[in-house]
């Protein structure tokens, strides 16, 4: 009897812990994917960068060229593309991010753009 109780308590504890952690992970599990994370282009040459996420529902996808210009946003689901060019030859740390409407913000992903003179 005592053994059964211990097992039951163990199962309950494990279950509650498991589901609790799952819940936490669900909130914190917004991932930001960005492709490519590295490329080389000439100035004024367009590059498409796609930002995606693992969570469904409506999300805001943000992209910044890393050159001090404004951050662009688009509302979408799972992934959104931005088509950009750079005007000066340099190495830029561009970044992308997802803010899910249901699950909150995801991490910022950085990429490296090497821009050469045309």
């Amino acid at each position: 009897m005592k053994k059964v109780s211990k097992v039951l308590v163990g199962i309950l504890l494990f279950g509650s812990l498991f589901f609790g952690i799952s819940q936490i992970e669900a909130n914190a599990a917004v991932e930001t994917n960005m492709t490519p994370t590295q490329f080389t282009k000439k100035t004024y040459e367009y590059q498409t960068i796609t930002i995606g996420t693992n969570v469904g529902g409506r999300a805001e996808f943000r992209f910044n060229k890393g050159d001090g210009s404004a951050t662009k946003t688009k509302l979408g689901s799972y992934s959104v593309s931005f088509r950009e060019y750079w005007t000066k030859s340099d190495i830029y740390n561009y970044w992308g991010r997802v803010i899910s409407e249901n699950y909150g913000p995801g991490p910022t992903r950085y990429g490296k753009a090497t821009i050469r003179i045309q």
Binding site: G68, A70, T71, K72, T73, K74, L75, E101
Partner: peptide, 29 residues
């Protein structure tokens, strides 16, 4: 962010009330 609603009125985005801009650009500085 701001958007034009179906009546061509300029609105401020208010997601809690489902008034949403589909995109845009903003400056952090």
């Amino acid at each position: 962010l701001l958007f034009l609603d179906e009546n061509d009125q300029l609105k401020l985005e208010d997601r809690e009330n489902d008034e949403i801009a589909l995109g845009g650009a903003f400056q952090m500085n």
